[in-house]
């Protein structure tokens, strides 16, 4: 019985491992293949041989603008005319470094296509969707990036120049170095903890102010951040900020919420982090309290022994 389940378990594990391995090995191949071919394709750009057969590429929005890190989707209409019958065309996109492209039918999702069969006398264009996206791990620098989309069949080829405009992306993140969102503090004393402010946008941030606003902390507490202003935070850079919390002298021990926020002067990005602060009984008072209790018990015992009989 047990052996059976173990066997099934092992089989399942092996199956899973195989499936995941196939995914991992598949993805880099797809990602690099179009990029390596693009240079050769761009060499045969201007050739337009057969005047009778016409291949026309149009795009209604050839230049797309988006925040860094987002995708660009172009809808390209391909019109083939003058031919006698249907023909198979190669589809190829040349994208700048740091991007990957994917070609898909204008309708329908998921399926990537590399070739397309076009009917010469169809009368209306076929739509192809070209999606260009930056590498997930590398946010592209803001700027304009040219993209070439080429459709070819033998000598008949046509290409269209597209443009991806990467606009600056302002985003910030705040975490703690170890990811813990709680800390301990002692009333009436300075307690330190560190937060990490990161620029997760694509543009540099200037004069980032790190602070804890009055409404974000319990009354009577002081919270200071060191530094409280980061002069410049490069895109992708992080900076450790030391937060010093001083709960008021008379804080009842227990959990309190603090919210640390960071915002550049331009106010085009914002982030905050809630920290659960556990105020501990100051050791001295804790001991005094325990001491009092012990004292009372001892005193009672003495009284009982001294004045009681036997």
């Amino acid at each position: 019985m047990i052996r059976k389940t173990v066997l099934i378990g092992i089989l399942c594990a092996v199956a899973l491992a195989l499936i995941s391995a196939s995914f991992i090995s598949a993805s880099p191949v797809k990602a690099t293949a179009p990029a390596s071919k693009c240079d050769m394709a761009s060499a045969v750009l201007q050739d337009d041989a057969q005047p009778t057969e016409k291949l026309e590429l149009t795009c209604q929005y050839p230049a797309l603008s988006s925040y860094a890190g987002l995708n660009y989707s172009y809808s390209i209409s391909v019109t083939y005319s003058g031919g006698k019958e249907s023909k198979i065309f190669n589809l190829k996109a040349v994208v700048p470094e740091g991007f990957v492209s994917a070609i898909a039918p204008g309708y329908g999702e998921g399926q990537e296509i590399a070739e397309i069969r076009l009917d010469a006398n169809k009368g209306y264009p076929e739509t192809v969707k070209l999606t260009v996206r930056p590498y997930a791990w590398k946010v592209p620098v803001p700027g304009e990036y040219p993209i070439t989309f080429e459709v070819s069949s033998g000598n008949l080829k046509s290409l269209i120049l597209l443009k991806a405009i990467v606009t600056a992306n302002y985003d910030m993140k705040m975490t703690t170095p170890d990811g813990r969102l709680n800390t301990e503090a002692t009333a009436g004393q300075d307690n330190n903890f560190t937060v990490v402010v990161g620029n997760s946008g694509s543009a540099d941030l200037e004069k980032v102010e790190v602070s804890c606003k009055a409404q974000d902390r319990p009354n009577g507490w002081t919270v200071t951040c060191q530094p409280d202003k980061i002069d410049s935070l490069k895109a992708g850079a992080t900076k450790e900020v030391q937060v010093t919390v001083k709960p008021s002298e008379k804080t009842i021990s227990g959990d309190y919420m603090l919210t640390i926020q960071a915002e550049p002067e331009s106010k085009n990005a914002f982030t905050n982090l809630q920290i659960r602060t556990t105020v501990l009984t100051p050791t001295i008072w804790g001991w005094v309290g325990v001491g009092i209790v012990v004292l009372v018990i001892v005193a009672l015992a003495i009284i009982f022994i001294r004045f009681g009989r036997r």
Partner: peptide, 22 residues
């Protein structure tokens, strides 16, 4: 007196331990 003094001090001691505010 013993009972009241002891219970009040006990409560005070325990309370001090729990809330930490002298």
């Amino acid at each position: 007196a013993i009972l009241i003094v002891s219970i009040v001090t006990l409560v005070a001691g325990l309370g001090l331990r729990m809330i930490g505010v002298p």
